Simulated scan of single mutants.
Amino acid sequence: MTVRDRGLAVVVAVLWGANFIAIHVGLEHFPPIFLAALRMLVLAVPTVLLIPRPKVPLRWLIGYGLGFGALQFLFLFLGMYAGMPAGLASLVLQASGPFTLVLGALLLREQVRLRQWIGIGVAVAGLATIALLRAQTAALLPVALTLLGALGWAAGNLCNRLAQRDGEAVDPLHLTLWMSVIPPVPLLAVSAVVEGPTTGWVATAAAFSWDGLPGLAALLYLSVVATVLGAGIWTALMRRYPAGVVAPHSLLVPVVGMGLAIVLLGERPSVPELVAGLVVVGGVLAASAPGRRARADPQVSRV
């Protein structure tokens, strides 16, 4: 990679790491399920009006939207609302990588190499350590919810992969934008039942006041900066270089997320949690690192 493009990859990692700080701020102003719906709704409306729908099977587009856009953010936001620290959430969500490999092996009969299984085992050991540490302080539920969010992301990854395989000249960025059309309706329905039919809309109206500006800024960051700008740069890099060159930069996301959480939110993860986090990152790196064939193929998708 050129110095410029490597810098862009780092910028994306910073944008995505700061995403968790924005979620933390957003949850102070919006109900969690409604915020997940609103994040996608902000993208869905201009997408339907301005972006042609990718020519992919509808079932895979719906699966991508439900997994990546609905389940991931539903459980992630609920987990953080229940007390999951922003920095730790950015780390635990990396379980989506190993989850994707396992689901691909089980459901799509994709081959997983021994090194990848070892990486999965290492990552699971790190996550289990974090869960055990949290269980000792009665904070296991937020970890479990965040892991369910990672599982939803993994399911969305498989549908994304199948959509691009079965589609015609698929633009990955257009597919990502059209994914946002799927989640708003089911998430708004769940929000109406669980959080109340008017709670989220009252919070939205309050966001346009002086006190609500941080919540509004967080929403715009989640929708426009982290998703459109971040995904746009990442997609361009993935088109330009093999996945094995670009994808490892995503492991900077939890580093940025935890660092910003320490500086801006005053979070103080314990030493055992930090060590377990390093184990998780190492396992994810080993599990997601492509083999020789993948490194030579610029069309290989990021896990």
Rank of each mutant, 00 (worst) to 15 (best):
L151K: 10
S288E: 06
L158C: 03
R302A: 15
V263H: 12
R6D: 15
Q299L: 11
V124H: 04
L148N: 07
G200S: 12
A217R: 02
P142N: 08
F20T: 15
G291D: 15
P254R: 07
P85H: 13
L76G: 02
L114V: 15
I62H: 05
V181C: 10
V3Y: 12
A13P: 03
F68V: 08
R165Q: 09
V245T: 12
L127Q: 07
L162F: 00
V56E: 01
R113T: 14
L50M: 11
L260D: 12
P52Y: 00
V202R: 13
V56K: 01
A86Q: 11
W16D: 04
G244K: 07
T2D: 14
V11E: 07
L76N: 06
L76W: 03
T146K: 06
Y221L: 05
L251C: 12
I21H: 14
R109E: 14
L101D: 10
E168L: 09
P98I: 05
G244I: 07
I51Q: 00
S90M: 10
G149N: 08
V245D: 12
L61S: 03
G291M: 08
A44T: 03
V25I: 15
V255S: 10
L76F: 05
G87R: 12
A261E: 13
R6Q: 15
R268H: 14
V281A: 12
A105K: 10
L106Y: 08
I262M: 15
D211M: 08
F30P: 06
C159D: 05
R295L: 14
L41T: 01
G104K: 07
D171E: 09
G283K: 00
